[in-house]
């Protein structure tokens, strides 16, 4: 009878185990590549700010000098655009969703002291190089000006 169409299925279901898992008593199973949250290998970060500019939510901030990178976990929509844009590939999308909470979700990652020291030395070296390059350029310009001057006088004499 069509009135009891679903009755056999319903009866069968009575004796089947539940399809749901008893989270949090059982661990949640994530498939490979699940978009949970963003992790950073902070020592590889060069502080270029590409991730900050690409993030559609404006949740990231980076301070190159201080060597910090911060994210507000509750603002992040786990779109993965920053991972795609990072030139050093130091951002990764890993499994595990952000758990709810009453406090702000802002997390700041700071580089290790060794890496900060390395960065500082690199910056100084770069500054030295830049200064040297500037000096060389100034010298060159002065020499060029010197060579130009007589030719200028010659031209005036010809006239």
């Amino acid at each position: 009878m069509s009135i009891l169409k679903y009755a056999p299925e319903a009866l069968k279901n009575l004796f089947k185990p539940p399809v749901t898992t008893k989270y949090p008593f059982e661990p949640a199973v994530y498939p490979e590549g699940a978009r949970g949250h963003i992790e950073i290998t902070i020592d590889d970060c060069i502080g270029c700010g590409m991730c900050v500019r690409s993030c559609p939510c404006g949740t990231l901030s980076v301070d190159k000098m201080a060597g910090t990178w911060s994210i507000d976990r509750f603002d992040c929509i786990a779109c993965g655009y920053c991972v795609e844009k990072c030139p050093k590939k130091c951002l990764t999308m890993v499994e595990g969703y952000q758990t709810p909470g009453a406090k702000e979700g802002k997390v700041t990652y700071t580089k290790s002291p060794e890496q900060l020291e390395k960065d500082r030395i690199a910056r100084e070296e770069q500054a030295k190089k830049a200064a040297a390059a500037r000096e060389a350029a100034a010298k060159k310009a002065a020499e060029a000006a010197k060579q130009q001057q007589p030719s200028g006088l010659e031209q005036a004499a010809k006239k």
Partner: peptide, 14 residues
């Protein structure tokens, strides 16, 4: 589950 397996997101695929 198929959506999560293929895209990483259950409803929003990105």
């Amino acid at each position: 589950d198929m959506q999560e397996m293929t895209s990483g997101g259950r409803l929003i695929f990105s």
